[in-house]
Amino acid sequence: MAASARTLIRPAVLRTRKGKLVYWSVLAVALALFTAAFLVPLYWAATGAMKSSAELAQSPPTYVPAHWHPENYARAWREMDLTRYFLNTVLLAGGAWLIQLAVQVPAAYALSKLRPRFGNVVLGLMLVTLMMPATALLVPAYLTVVDVPLVNRNLINSPSAVWLPAAANAFNIYLLKNFFDRVPDELLDAARIDGAGPLGTMWRIVLPLSRPILAVVSILSVVAAWKDFLWPLLVLPDPAKQPLSVFLQRVAQDTPLNSLVAGLVMASLPLIALFLVFQRQIIAGLGAGCLKG
């Protein structure tokens, strides 16, 4: 007989009327608190953008706008020329996503299935970078993009200065490798018998089975590139090439507060929409524990 799982409260207590009441009460309060923690800032920003600047700055604040100004969004978009900076951000995030998949998927596949000599050492060195503060890597990364080794090219004010460092993401490689490890070796052996090489096996066998984890890595890559601030600030000093995160900070001092908040809300909408659309894929990818043969 299988041993019952140990829990904080005994199952017998949970089956009583009092136990059920306490359980559902605690669950409802916890869900309400977590929901409020996520939704209150979104509500505050969305409604704050529709207030006048004076009302937004007054103390104590108003929880509901006294006068609604939804036109603040259109005015902020027009006056701050957000179309250009949205396109800049899409270019940087899209390029970072593509180059990450192009580098990280083959790297994880090689470490998982090709098992090169010293592969564990290479993986360990990659994981060590996760233990280092991101700020400690800024100076060496900046010196690298200023004078790229071997080609001796300066990438400052080029999208490549954002794309190439994004490919070196040890966490994504670890996620991919962990998933590839669960792909049955029998499938790869059958592909090799049919004459497929390592690249063909990866493309025809492994990648179709890896759609959940590829979706997770893609979303993580896009979100990280979209909201990144410090690195684009360093490598894209030209204002015309900066993403939304850098642009909104640069104009914050000279922009009305309600217009600035409207710009921040609109900059956040694509990420919120991305999560709402692909939340099922995110959960499926992170929860994938095995593959059926």
Score class of each variant (00 low, 15 high):
151 V>K: 10
222 V>M: 04
136 A>V: 04
95 G>I: 00
74 A>G: 13
144 T>Q: 06
175 L>S: 04
190 A>I: 08
174 Y>A: 14
185 D>C: 12
43 Y>N: 09
114 L>C: 07
36 A>H: 15
153 R>C: 11
131 M>W: 14
174 Y>P: 01
201 T>M: 02
266 M>I: 03
113 K>R: 02
172 N>S: 09
184 P>C: 11
162 V>A: 04
213 I>D: 04
38 F>K: 11
267 A>V: 00
7 T>H: 09
270 P>C: 09
265 V>R: 08
37 A>E: 10
146 V>F: 11
144 T>L: 10
63 Y>R: 08
211 R>Q: 13
21 L>T: 08
121 V>H: 15
265 V>W: 04
262 A>L: 08
47 T>R: 14
138 L>H: 01
233 L>R: 04
144 T>G: 09
6 R>Q: 14
235 V>H: 01
46 A>L: 15
252 A>R: 01
170 A>D: 02
101 L>P: 12
200 G>Q: 07
60 P>I: 05
79 E>N: 15
288 A>N: 05
18 K>D: 12
109 Y>W: 09
27 L>I: 07
17 R>L: 05
197 G>F: 07
83 T>P: 14
154 N>M: 05
235 V>D: 00
289 G>Q: 10
118 F>C: 13
275 F>I: 03
130 L>C: 05
140 P>H: 00
281 Q>V: 14
239 P>K: 00
111 L>F: 03
199 L>F: 09
5 A>S: 10
199 L>N: 05
65 P>G: 13
239 P>Q: 03
68 W>T: 10
206 V>I: 12
92 L>E: 00
118 F>H: 15
161 A>P: 05
252 A>H: 06
110 A>M: 07
38 F>M: 14
15 R>H: 13
179 F>E: 12
287 G>F: 10
8 L>G: 07
228 D>K: 00
87 L>W: 06
19 G>P: 01
17 R>E: 05
